[in-house]
Amino acid sequence: MARDDMKRPRQLGGELVIPVLAVAFTLYFFSTIWNSPWTAQVSAFLVGGILLAFCAIFAARCVIWMRAGGASLGFGNLVSRDDITTGRVGLLICTVGYTVLIDRLGFTLTTFLFLFLSMIILAKGRRPGFITAISAAMAFGGWAVFIWAFDTRFPRGWFETTMQAVLANG
């Protein structure tokens, strides 16, 4: 297995994502300060210039490796079939849903739904009863500590409003 890994060419596509993002962001950053006073430019041009230089060197290094046959433009180290089988993609979808819905449904309900769905996905549907109980306990515990006890301004929805009314009216 280790020998197979050694034979396999280095997957540079994934490694190039960060430098590509860095170059795109730096160029965008430069565009926002092009006509600004020097105080806004000096540090950014200095840091951004060095970053662009490092990215250029990295790109050149990649080209040399690929020409030597020791690397390819594959993305195997970043995305693979394992992302689906381990439930990572499902967890990502749940996470995006969590951040979008929490403002509408409130902390407690959204946290329960998120924990339940993501644990079910990761556990491949096993132990639904236990997962329901643990999700409910965590969500309710979070509400009790952060909203009821500490009065933190967590996003609130109908559950929090209802509980507030219930507690206020004894």
Partner: peptide, 26 residues
Amino acid sequence: KGLIAGFLGLMIGSIGTDVVYATPRG
């Protein structure tokens, strides 16, 4: 790669207004 990561962090840290004229950047 470490230097690219560090300088990318420094660039991200530069987001916001500059401290003298409050010019918005990035």
